[in-house]
């Protein structure tokens, strides 16, 4: 494992910790999209089915389990916690997730490495992760004002994807015959989804003011 990949994973983990801390400390999930969090749970469940039949490393297994547990913990807070669930912007978080799930599934059936249940589900998870942040970005656009922690959460998620891109470039030049087109193309799309957000995040940071999205 190279330094870019490790930095990417740690940024991903940190983004989840930031979100969980925000929810626990402020007892509020205002500005957080439950739809996006549920899509991430679907992504992790369909991708990490290999926990049952393949072992890569202890690091790999532990991280997968952490991502699964934290995803369901966040969903639990937003749906079931008696204080937190009342702060959820249900009326604003109206993205139709089937418009993401169905096309990703069809694409996974059409473009994959092998027509098996686990391989199609794994491919589906790759496609779905690329667009899973969209309900969150739409919610942000609607509520306009972005609180610091939610902003940092999304910024870290975007950074994690950017670090994965660098990791793939590094692996391409250091590992003979290494290529994974499905992952590369989806990952590039996924990183591009964040570009607009990055622009406003960096602008707010440079002007030392609270982040605001244009109408």
């Amino acid at each position: 494992m190279n330094i870019f990949r490790l930095a990417g994973d740690m940024t991903h983990l940190l983004s989840i910790i930031v979100l969980l801390l925000k929810i626990q400390a402020t007892k509020s999930c205002a500005g957080v999209s439950l739809k996006t969090q549920e899509l991430y749970a679907v992504v992790f469940v369909t991708r990490y089915l290999d926990l049952f039949y393949s072992f890569i490393s202890l690091y790999n297994t532990v991280m997968k389990i952490i991502f699964l547990l934290t995803a369901f913990t966040i969903i639990w807070y937003m749906r079931k916690h008696k204080v937190v669930c009342q702060t959820y912007d249900k009326e604003q978080d109206t993205f139709r997730v089937l418009f993401l799930i169905v096309p990703c599934f069809v694409l996974a059936l059409l473009v994959n490495h092998e027509m098996s249940v686990t391989e199609v589900l794994w491919t589906f998870s790759i496609y779905l992760e690329a667009v899973a942040i969209l309900p969150q970005l739409v919610l942000l656009q609607r509520t306009k004002n972005v609180d610091n922690l939610t902003g940092n959460y999304i910024f870290m998620l975007g950074s994690y994807r950017a670090l994965y891109l660098v990791n793939w470039v590094y692996r391409y030049f250091t590992e003979l015959g290494y290529r994974q087109w499905i992952v590369w193309v989806s990952g590039t799309v996924q990183t591009c989804v964040y570009l607009d957000f990055f622009y406003y995040y960096v602008q707010a940071w440079r002007n030392n003011e609270r982040m605001k999205l244009p109408g």
Binding site: R5, D9, H12, D50, S54, I56, S57, N60, M63, K64, F67, H113, W122, Y164, N167, G177, Y178, R179, Q180, W181, I182, V183
Partner: peptide, 10 residues
């Protein structure tokens, strides 16, 4: 091109 990279990423 055939991808045969191991699924070792998260």
């Amino acid at each position: 091109a055939q991808d045969d990279a191991p699924k070792d990423e998260l």
